Amino acid sequence: MLTVVAGDLLADRVGKAEPRVLALHGWQRSGADFSRILEGTDALAVHLPGFGITPTPPEAWGSVEYADHLAQALAGSGPFVVVGHSFGGRVAVRLAVRHPELVSALVITGAPLVRATPPPRPSWRFRTLKRLHAAHLVPQSVMDRVRRSSGSDDYRAAEGVMRGVFVRVVGEDYREDLAAVRVPAHLVWGELDDSAPLAGARLAAEILPGARLDVVPGEGHLMTGALQDAVRTALLAAIGDVEADGAGSVTPPTTDADPSPQEPA
């Protein structure tokens, strides 16, 4: 059921009790990605600003602004087990550090949190045009056309404010925030994820205090198939752990699935 969280922030409401799970989707995705994962829980699958049916932010936000916006909308509720995919995982880490009262545990998949290799160097042609543009020898229209043709699919698909959001977010670094997380964290990764490579997930797991990393063989970036099942299993385990520890009033899920996590990769 679609619900207004606060202001113009929308979410799919799952369950009947007070939500204790918060699901944050990936870039160009929506809260609907979590429909199977959240079955039997009490949850909010947020449609982040600029995605799905939620209006775009007023300016080019980074993940910090997204986290702060969420915190303002959720003030007085929670804490939540936060499950984040890709871009949503970035926001989840920021939320856990900046607003720890709202987060009881993290489950993250496919989020580019740490680079394991240096970013690819722009082509010689692009670097030359950029220098000429800085010297006012190449017009802005030419640079815009070159960026559109050479950027990633996500960059080319984004427009206006959301293109600015994309540029900000891909340049962010999360090492300091990862080290500051103080709630249980479970990373679940597709072995073949080419948008957020596994090597980066391994580095993130080393930085996150006490984090667990499960690798799902043969799976990629999107939450389908075995990766979807593994994320659900990790989420149910996190809910059970929070309930056992008494950290927040988490309603036990109604499910026939095995809530035990996978063996560590």
Results as ranks from 00 to 15, higher is better:
100 P>T: 04
142 V>W: 07
116 A>G: 15
127 R>C: 03
58 P>Q: 05
81 V>S: 11
80 F>M: 13
154 D>L: 05
48 L>V: 02
114 V>R: 13
33 D>R: 10
77 S>N: 12
76 G>P: 06
51 F>P: 01
93 V>D: 01
98 R>Y: 02
67 A>E: 07
108 I>F: 12
133 H>K: 04
56 T>F: 05
121 R>V: 15
69 H>G: 02
70 L>F: 04
67 A>C: 03
115 R>V: 10
103 V>I: 09
53 I>V: 12
85 H>S: 13
145 R>W: 13
156 R>N: 00
91 V>G: 06
62 G>Q: 06
163 R>E: 01
57 P>K: 00
40 G>T: 08
148 R>L: 01
98 R>E: 10
40 G>S: 12
130 K>L: 14
131 R>A: 09
145 R>A: 15
104 S>V: 05
85 H>M: 09
64 V>W: 03
104 S>F: 05
68 D>H: 06
132 L>G: 05
58 P>S: 11
71 A>H: 01
25 H>E: 04
144 D>G: 08
141 S>C: 10
157 A>D: 03
128 T>I: 02
25 H>N: 08
34 F>A: 13
163 R>Y: 00
79 P>D: 12
102 L>D: 06
89 G>Q: 10
157 A>V: 08
150 S>T: 08
79 P>E: 12
29 R>A: 11
85 H>C: 07
110 G>I: 07
150 S>M: 09
138 V>S: 13
41 T>F: 14
90 R>E: 03
134 A>I: 00
74 L>I: 07
146 V>P: 00
123 S>M: 03
86 S>Q: 09
63 S>E: 01
83 V>K: 12
